[in-house]
């Protein structure tokens, strides 16, 4: 499904953010990326959908290297890769349903997109997705009136509206309380099991990673230190990942 080969990225000369990353991720997998702050987790995640341009390597998704696509091709591929953010990144002044429908903007022509013209099928799908993320009754509320957990679920519904093959989640529960965190991760896990969507999630909480992940990728100083199914990851490996000395 997603193959990352020899991926490198350097922000400042002599200080590589990603060093020869080689990772393979299967369909419907819940993959957690772990690692200390500044290890390169976000850089890796954002390199996948080209929000960050990497220096060399390959990111193969649906038999195409995302790194060499032109603007138009990249926009088409991005429609198949959803993303949710730590700070939700919703248009807070707009309603919940409008934000969910934004997931379809990539598939609209210029005028439909600019004026927010959506078909009946799309609107019905948005309503159904809101039921799926347990936000029925909130459709016409402004996003600014929602709690953090509710905003994140709107973000998930928006990503699902894209009909994605992969959802990239950049620390999706970092701003949430424990109960909301579990609710959001349960929802993401359900998507992998029921819809076969691959979720790649950056997390800081090792316990949550061990609860939800099918595969764990550990990154330290820009290099992959762990790349194993969860069952193969032991305490010593995780300790070494966060150990400042090693």
């Amino acid at each position: 499904m997603l193959e990352i080969k020899h991926l490198n990225k350097t922000y400042k000369a002599g200080r590589p953010a990603l060093k020869d990353i080689n990772v393979s991720i299967g369909k419907g997998q819940f993959v957690v990326i772990l690692g200390p702050s500044g290890a390169g987790k976000t850089t890796l995640l954002r390199s996948i959908n080209q929000l960050i341009t990497s220096d060399s390597g390959e990111i193969d998704f649906e038999d195409q290297n995302l790194r060499v696509l032109n603007k138009q091709q990249l926009r088409q591929k991005r429609q198949r890769i959803g993303m949710i953010f730590q700070n939700y990144n919703l248009v807070e002044r707009l309603t919940v349903i409008e934000n969910v429908l934004h997931g379809r903007l990539g598939q609209k022509n210029l005028w439909q997109g600019m004026f927010g013209v959506f078909s009946q099928t799309e609107k019905q799908e948005a309503l159904r997705l809101l039921q799926e993320v347990d936000l029925q009754g909130f459709e016409l509320k402004n996003c600014s009136d929602l709690s953090g957990g509710q905003k994140q679920r709107v973000g998930i519904a928006r990503a699902l509206m894209q009909h994605p093959q992969i959802i990239l989640c950049d620390e999706p529960v970092a701003s949430l309380d424990p109960a909301s965190s579990v609710m959001v991760l349960d929802l993401l896990k359900k998507l992998t099991v029921e819809k076969g969507i691959t979720c790649i999630v950056n997390l800081h909480q090792v316990d949550l990673a061990l609860d939800y992940a099918d595969q764990i990728i550990g990154i330290k100083a820009g290099a992959v230190q762990i790349n194993e199914p969860k069952s193969q990851v032991d305490k010593a490996m995780l300790q070494a990942l966060y150990d400042k000395e090693s």
């Binding site: 926009r75 591929k77 990144n89 934004h102 990539g106 598939q107 210029l110 997109g113 894209q162």
Partner: peptide, 11 residues
């Protein structure tokens, strides 16, 4: 957030 949906600049 909207860039990742594949939307263009004006949209």
């Amino acid at each position: 957030a909207l860039q990742v949906t594949g939307a263009g600049g004006l949209v």
